[in-house]
Design a protein around this nucleic acid. Structure first.
Lengths: 175, 175
DNA sequence: TATTGTTATACTCTATAACTATA
DNA sequence: TATAGTTATAGAGTATAACAATA
């Protein structure tokens, strides 16, 4: 259990993280926002999924996904076909254009990170990935671990790949 | 130097971090956004500073600070007095109400983090702080920038007083 | 009635550009 | 001319609430 000063410093790092996100945002291709990039990556990883599932994976409201996905469909990056089994739902699928976009995205972010983190070791990057994954998992009330490498093969399973999964439901500390 | 797959995973963790930020945002007091909280913390740490300095510390455009600070002054949390030495400038100072607000803020975030990170050790939290500090530093201090990227003014900051300070250009965060 | 998704509205954060007032 | 700050505008991300279609 950490102390108050440490938590305050952690929060400060959280807010400073905005700079990193903004820098990454500057290299995004036209029409492709952070959110679009995240959706492309998830579709590539999980295959054809429904909007609700996507909202769950990204931990945002479905209205957010709905608008986002509409934009991406207009760009030609994804298909939205009605689910034959439940006509309220729509199945999302990456188009070839979507894959191209994802490749371009991956190319650009890799180049930027390789430059900025050129003095980081493989191991250090791995540690940051691990800690951020665990942080997210500590904050995720669903117990799932949607976007982490540690859960690549198992987004439905209760994250067996690390010993820190949290199923706590307490709302302590919330208004 | 890490590999492409690792960089891609890192970017995924970055986007997943949004959830953490949103959760933290939910406990903020009325009228006090993430941005306000960050400004309060910086004013408390650095004392009376000018708007430009604040913009530099937060790595955002001054127009952003201007609006933010206007809101905070309206709330009574900060004073904006003209700088006698340069009447174009304004010196920002925390009011007693601003301190109270910061205390309340600190109380709430500490409670939330203590709950969510209850199974993290002191050392683990410290490692995350160190790695995020280094990440930030890697993104605002690089001499060579990839084509098409806007330079972010590198800044030197005074050494803060506690052991988890973030702005130093040290090897903190490295093993 | 409950669930899936859509749309409308509002609020925050951010950057650019045009503006002012000093220097 | 150059700098410190302000304001207007635009765009992205998010949440809530009202709504439609289907289960």
């Amino acid at each position: 259990m950490a102390e108050r000063a440490q938590y305050e410093e952690l929060v400060r790092q959280f807010s400073a993280f905005g700079l990193v996100k903004r820098e990454l945002g500057r290299i995004l291709p036209d029409g492709c926002s952070h959110a679009s990039a995240a959706v492309l990556a998830l579709l590539s990883r999980y295959g054809d999924i429904r909007m609700g599932k996507l909202a769950e994976l990204l931990a945002v409201d479905m209205s957010v996904i709905s608008r986002q996905v509409a934009h991406m469909a207009a760009q030609g990056w994804i298909d939205r076909s009605p689910d034959p089994a439940d006509r309220r739902s729509r199945i999302l699928r990456l188009t070839p254009e979507g894959r191209d976009q994802l490749d371009e995205l991956s190319e650009r972010t890799t180049r930027l990170l390789a430059d900025r983190l050129s003095d980081w070791t493989d191991d250090e990057v791995g540690r940051l990935i691990g800690l951020m994954a665990r942080l997210r998992s500590s904050f995720d009330s669903t117990g799932c671990e949607p976007a982490g490498l540690t859960a690549v093969t198992a987004h439905r399973t209760p994250s067996p790949s690390h010993p820190y999964a949290s199923d706590r439901r307490t709302d302590e500390g919330r208004p």
